[in-house]
């Protein structure tokens, strides 16, 4: 029997716990939020945003439609060399209910960390994230994550995975099963209910993961590079299917990606981030008609302009930021 893979998942963001004992690791995994995370300090004083030209301030004028507010969030990790690494610096962002918002940036810009903060999996070093005005203090079924690594329970079948959420929410077994079967059909996996995740392809696994999250009816979907591990063809198909599913009920989606095409194709709004330290570079509204059809959109000059403009902005910042 070979040793199993060690604890660090493929591209885990560090989760802020310096304790290197195994026990500390499981504990950190079980309670990622520590009590100091309330983030109220400094809330009264007027702080001038350090990177004011990039940061769109939290807008208070239309609180009815704001579902998630990220208020001056910073995240500092201690690296193994005992140096502070600023993953996120002074991020403020408001996400409106029903919007499809992508966070776009190079790897290492802290975009996943920002998503984990909204998920309540990681507590920010300073600042606060709020969901419908309530400070986020931990994970909850109102915010459903979908991870790049799928994170399906290997000991459960497709049906068992999808039923997990409703059962945890106290839905009766028969009802949870009926709902889950309907969801499995919706993501296109009818007939695979009794398969185990290991028997599915990557694309199918991600469909199951999406169904598992949708099953407990989160108000916000938090998608962490969900199609990043898939081949181009599967990726395109899942993007189309995600849009079709999303267009039925228009849940709020926060979607992390490093693909410009993907962000423009899917989103109402693209939040461009730059790295070291992770900052919001620009927020771009994508004004393209819905429902979006891939074959139409690829020929649409407006779509092409968005993609080219965003890529150019990243290139400029790379040249400006590179030390030669």
């Amino acid at each position: 029997m070979k040793a199993r893979q060690n604890g660090r998942g493929s591209n885990d963001a560090p989760h802020g716990c310096a304790n290197d004992s195994l026990s500390g690791r499981l504990l950190a995994k079980l309670m990622p939020l520590n009590p100091r995370a309330s983030g109220t300090e400094g809330g009264m004083t007027v702080v001038s945003a350090r990177s004011s030209e990039w940061v769109r301030p939290v807008t208070q004028q239309d609180p009815a439609s704001a579902i998630i507010e990220i208020d001056r969030v910073s995240q500092v990790f201690q690296t193994s060399a005992r140096k502070d690494h600023v993953a996120l610096s002074d991020i403020s962002l408001t996400i409106e209910e029903g919007a499809f918002v992508s966070i776009l940036g190079p790897s290492g810009c802290g975009k996943s960390t920002l998503l984990y903060i909204v998920g309540g999996f990681v507590s920010p070093t300073s600042g606060a994230a709020r969901m419908k005005g309530q400070a986020i203090t931990g994970p909850g079924p109102d915010r459903g994550p979908v991870f790049q690594e799928f994170a399906l329970f290997p000991w459960k079948t497709v049906l068992g995975n999808v039923m997990y959420g409703p059962r945890q929410q106290g839905v009766r077994a028969a009802e949870a099963e009926a709902q889950s079967r309907a969801l499995i059909e919706m993501v296109g996996l009818k007939g695979y209910e009794n398969f185990y995740p290991k028997e599915l392809s990557g694309g199918m696994k991600q469909r199951v993961a999406l169904a598992r999250t949708l099953a407990y009816h989160p108000e916000v979907l938090l998608m962490d590079e969900p199609f990043g591990a898939l081949d181009a063809h599967t990726r395109t198909r899942l993007q189309n299917d995600l849009l079709n599913i999303w267009e039925r009920d228009r849940k709020t989606v926060l979607f992390v990606t490093h693909s410009v095409d993907e962000a423009v194709f899917l989103s109402d709004k693209v939040v461009m981030m730059s790295k070291s330290p992770g900052r919001i570079r620009q927020v771009i509204d994508i004004d393209l008609p819905r429902p979006r059809r891939r074959n139409e959109l690829l020929l649409d000059p407006r779509y092409q302009k968005y993609v080219v403009d965003i890529e150019r902005m990243f290139d400029e910042s790379d040249q400006a930021g590179a030390p030669a």
């Binding site: 893979q5 195994l22 995994k29 329970f153 598992r212």
Partner: peptide, 13 residues
């Protein structure tokens, strides 16, 4: 050494 994201998925549920 349980994968972090399995735990997170269950917490969110």
């Amino acid at each position: 050494t349980v994968e972090q994201k399995l735990i997170w998925s269950a917490m969110a549920a």
